Computed example of a mutant assay.
Amino acid sequence: MNGEVTIRKAKKEEIHWVNEQYQRIGFKLSSLESDLIAIAMIDGQKIGVGRVQTISEFHAELGGMYVNPDFRGAGVAAKLFAFLVENASQFKHVYCLPFAHLAKFYQKFGFKQVIERDDVPDLILSKHHWCNDIYDHETLLFVKYNSKTEY
């Protein structure tokens, strides 16, 4: 990998490519109407994708992180993640459902494991349950608080 990794928002004409990546790995498909989608590129080649899905005025979910295996280990996921976290700062709570073996990566960005689930949106709770039914890896429930007050 010689070039510099750049991250930018996906364009309307790229949604087909984005959803091809998600279909290949068994993730739910994305929509530009409800999702902020970021694409990682190097030398004009798309090498990774991630998204922030709006749940409500105050809640979002960060996820759909995928980096082409040929480009893993070069910090691409961290750059994608940082871009998405920065672009989700208007939400009070940003949830994510990482596989357990990736917990330390998410914690580096200020995410904490959810202990008290009373205020977690039903959509997130049901998706968390779905992930643990579907995927071979254990899926955790994390949140990042963007306000000064933690609930």
Rank of each mutant, 00 (worst) to 15 (best):
T139P: 07
G44R: 04
I39W: 05
F91P: 11
A40Y: 02
Q21D: 09
S89A: 11
A100W: 04
S34F: 04
R24L: 08
H16M: 14
N132C: 10
K144C: 08
I47E: 00
G63D: 07
S147G: 13
G26P: 03
Y66E: 10
T149M: 12
N132Q: 05
S31N: 13
E116N: 14
A60Y: 00
E20R: 13
H137D: 13
Q113P: 12
Y151W: 12
N2V: 08
L125C: 10
D136G: 05
L32Q: 11
K11A: 08
L97H: 02
D119N: 10
A40V: 02
V52C: 13
H16C: 07
K79P: 00
H128A: 12
C131A: 13
E20V: 03
I47S: 03
S89Y: 01
Y145D: 08
H59N: 15
K46N: 11
S147N: 06
I42D: 05
G26R: 13
F58L: 07
E33M: 15
Y151S: 07
S126N: 15
K79L: 05
M1A: 14
S126F: 11
V18G: 00
I7G: 09
N19F: 05
S89L: 08
F111K: 01
N2S: 04
Q113N: 11
Y151F: 09
M65W: 03
I15S: 05
G64D: 06
V85G: 02
V114Q: 04
N87P: 12
N132H: 08
G3I: 06
N87H: 15
D118H: 07
A82E: 11
N146T: 07
F105P: 03
G64E: 02
I15Y: 11
S56P: 08
F58K: 15
N19G: 10
L125N: 15
K46S: 10
I25L: 09
C96R: 01
D133K: 14
A38K: 00
N2I: 02
T6W: 04
E57C: 10
E14V: 10
F111N: 01
D133L: 12
L141A: 01
G50C: 13
T6I: 15
G26T: 15
G48C: 07
G48N: 09
L102H: 13
F71Q: 00
L141F: 11
C131S: 04
I47Y: 01
V94K: 00
M65P: 01
I37A: 03
F109C: 02
N68V: 09
H59Q: 05
A103M: 14
L62T: 02
E86P: 11
H93C: 03
Q90N: 13
P121H: 01
Y151Q: 11
K127A: 14
A77K: 13
A100C: 00
F27P: 01
S30H: 00
G26I: 06
D119E: 12
D136E: 15
G75I: 08
Q113S: 12
Y22C: 09
Y151A: 12
L62D: 05
